[in-house]
Nucleic acid binder design. Structure first.
Length: 194
DNA sequence: CCGCCGATCTTT
DNA sequence: AAGATCGGCGGG
């Protein structure tokens, strides 16, 4: 099935609008592809849970830049997690990629993630997803909306999720009541609580 | 399947 | 000292 690349305009909206729209879309990177099934929105300046809440720092520079780039951060001393920067240039905002269904290049993903035993171990969590795609600090800031051949990009193949669930975000201690997590119902690649 | 805990290091 | 996580282990 053919896939249309999401452009910068798609990401130039409030992350709370972009996030649910990303469900069902497909992450591509060279031979690898996976369909997004779980996302969370982080709203920068007005969101105490966002890394950008207290303003721009060396770590969060990318979040304040133009939309359609990856914000990849290091956490818990060993994991990388990836967001797509959303909203206007100069305004911090991002959508965390939390879960995806592997579609292509699975043998390559297993090579990137030695501990994975089954397909649902590959992309069922933000750090697992990033690891399966081989993303790390060198991926931070990469443009995914510039039509760059070797860079990751996100495509729309016309598939829409059957049922979407909206809940509070996972793994945070501040602003836990904000309903800014969305996931596809009954999908084994969703990482958090159902 | 679920809950608990340790790993490991950057950021605050 | 905490953190946008994960995997191993033990118990039900």
């Amino acid at each position: 099935m053919s896939s249309e690349r999401l452009d910068r305009e798609f990401f130039a909206r409030d992350p709370r609008e972009v996030a649910p729209d990303l469900l069902g879309k497909v992450i591509h990177h060279r031979d690898l592809a996976a369909r997004i099934v779980e996302v969370e929105a982080y709203v920068g300046g007005e969101d105490p849970a966002s890394h950008a809440y207290k303003g721009e720092t060396p770590r969060t520079t990318v979040m304040f830049g133009p939309p359609g780039h990856l914000y990849v951060y290091f956490t818990y001393g060993m994991h990388w997690c990836a967001n797509v920067v959303c909203g206007e240039d100069g305004v911090a905002g991002a959508v965390l990629l939390r879960g995806a269904e592997p579609l292509s290049g699975l043998s390559h993903m297993y090579r990137n993630r030695i501990v994975a035993k089954r397909d649902s171990d590959l992309c069922s969590g933000p750090a697992k997803l990033a690891q399966s795609f081989g993303w790390d600090g060198s991926t931070n800031g990469v443009d995914i909306a510039g039509g760059i051949d070797d860079a990751p990009w996100i495509g729309d193949d016309g598939t829409a999720p059957e049922a979407v669930v909206n809940t509070g975000r996972v793994g945070i201690t501040r602003a836990v009541e904000e309903p800014w997590r969305w996931y596809v119902a009954d999908n084994p690649n969703v990482s958090g609580p159902r």
